[in-house]
């Protein structure tokens, strides 16, 4: 995999009046990767994306896409970008097909065969007026317009939030197709299975700052392991260890979580404590996200 940065931001800050939406955000997306962009609602994902598209101007810090400044040169960047917003709003009087053609044409025109195939796969009726479409159907318009013409970078802001499971899988196939063709994808999402299946690397942000970034394997390594130990005479030995969290006694068992670097000490304490049954589970992605999403501030 090549490592030319497609997106870089450094110390990116955006303030709206007194509110700080982005607070020194550093994001790196390499060429050819599908990059998961995660964070609770209001963390600053959409604001970051708007800065990357040159729709809003950073208060301080820098952003670059394809090595260009999006605020100074948005049109050049947009030639190679396909964008799907989180909440798609369409022109009520245009049909879905007309909206697809308009958006794709402004980027240079849809590939007719690809457009037809996407409309079929997404089971989309392009003849209806946009005002009659549901959220999922409006999203399909933006998705079809985005995928109907090859781009170098796809910026997708919670693109599957209105889709049913079948359509979600169509969406995943499309992401995999463009990745195979060498494109880069920045995918903001809350759907963990989607992230797990599609993303090479993820960045988790909270309150406008990056709290975690790396490959999924790396993130798992950083996270805790869950233990359940039965028959241990004295749980206090484990409780006292540094790096052990959330210990609770359930009958004759104890349950706790341990940081990666605390595991040798935990295993020693368990072995010495007379345990007769041990289960250890790697942190699920879900627990990782929950920890970052809900951490008290």
């Amino acid at each position: 995999m090549t490592t030319a940065p497609i997106i870089t931001t450094s110390a990116l800050t955006k303030r709206f009046g007194r509110a700080t939406a982005l607070d020194g955000l550093d994001l790196h997306v390499d060429e050819g990767e599908v990059h998961g962009f995660l964070g609770p609602n209001g963390a600053g994902k959409s604001t970051t994306i708007r800065v990357l598209l040159g729709l809003i101007k950073p208060s301080s810090g820098t952003a670059s896409v394809f090595g260009l400044d999006p605020w100074a040169d948005p049109e050049t960047i947009h030639r190679d970008v396909a964008y799907v917003p989180g909440d798609v709003s369409l022109w009520p009087g245009l049909t879905g097909g007309e909206a697809i053609d308009l958006l794709a044409s402004l980027r240079g025109g849809a590939e007719a065969a690809l457009r037809a195939e996407l409309i079929e796969q997404f089971e989309f009726d392009p003849r209806k007026k946009a005002r009659t479409y549901s959220k999922g159907n409006r999203q399909k318009v933006a998705l079809i317009a985005a995928f109907a013409r090859p781009a170098r970078l796809y910026i997708l802001d919670e693109p599957s939030s209105g889709l049913d499971p079948v359509m979600e899988s169509v969406f995943r196939q499309q992401v995999q197709r463009v990745r195979a063709a060498g494109a880069t994808v920045l995918l903001s999402s809350h759907v963990l299975s989607e992230v797990e299946q599609l993303c090479d690397r993820v960045t988790i942000i909270r309150e406008g700052r990056v709290v975690e970034s790396g490959s999924l394997a790396e993130l798992r390594h950083l996270s805790r392991t869950s233990f359940r130990v039965s028959g241990m005479a004295d749980a206090a030995a484990v409780r006292a260890l540094p790096g052990v969290h959330d210990l609770v006694a359930v009958g004759d068992s104890v349950e706790f979580e341990a940081d990666a670097d605390a595991i040798p000490a935990v295993l020693a304490a368990v072995a010495g404590g007379g345990a007769h049954a041990v289960t250890a589970a790697p942190a699920s992605l879900e627990s990782l996200f929950l920890r970052h999403y809900s951490e008290t501030r």
């Binding site: 049909t95 097909g97 007309e98 053609d101 308009l102 044409s105 003849r127 007026k129 009659t132």
Partner: peptide, 16 residues
């Protein structure tokens, strides 16, 4: 009733 419309844009519907 709401009428259904064109499945694709005319030439004029492809520009700003």
């Amino acid at each position: 009733p709401e009428r259904s419309g064109r499945a694709s844009a005319r030439f004029g519907g492809r520009s700003v």
